[in-house]
Simulated scan of single mutants.
Amino acid sequence: MKRRDFLTLTAAAAFAPLTLRAAIADYAPGLVTKALENGETVFLDFKASWCSTCAAQERVINALLEENPAYDQSITFINVDWDEHGKSELAKSLRIPRRSTLVVLKGNQELGRIVAGTSVSDIKALMDTALSAATA
């Protein structure tokens, strides 16, 4: 094997794990509607950068995403900045009471929600509900 080929293959292998995880999208008007119209299962995370409960939820979500790649492959995750979109039509239509609210949607149905909860088992159950809907 040529040295250049070896270096190219080694570099590709080293960076491959970094590209496996899909990006979590940041909310923009119309994004949720478009995803739902495409038949996607959507996991919304209404959060604020200064919110400690939101940070705890994010740690749990990230850990679960690392444990089970099927979540990332099957579910569309969207972060909704509460400070910017807390009074948006999306938040009003879903009756989001506060930041640190997690909601799963499929089609025109809400499949579940957690408000201010940080329990690993509760968040995992919500993500499992989303995964079941996404793979059904």
Rank of each mutant, 00 (worst) to 15 (best):
V115F: 09
D81C: 01
L105H: 08
D72T: 10
S121Q: 14
D122W: 08
S52H: 13
W82P: 01
L64C: 12
A55G: 09
A35T: 01
I75W: 07
L36E: 03
L31P: 04
R59T: 15
G86E: 04
S74M: 06
R95A: 11
L36A: 06
G112Q: 05
I61G: 04
L18F: 11
S52D: 11
R21V: 15
T129R: 08
V60C: 03
D5Y: 03
V120W: 09
S49P: 05
A25I: 05
P97C: 06
A35N: 08
K34A: 13
A12V: 15
A134F: 03
R21F: 11
I61D: 02
A134Y: 02
T8N: 12
K92N: 09
K124N: 11
A22P: 06
I114D: 08
S49Q: 10
T118D: 09
S88N: 04
D81G: 02
N79V: 09
G30H: 04
P69K: 11
T101W: 02
H85N: 11
V120E: 13
F43H: 01
A11V: 06
L90G: 00
N38L: 12
A70R: 10
N79H: 12
A12F: 07
K2V: 09
A125E: 14
M1V: 14
Y71M: 10
N38G: 10
G86I: 04
T129G: 07
A55L: 15
G107D: 09
D72F: 05
K47P: 00
A28P: 02
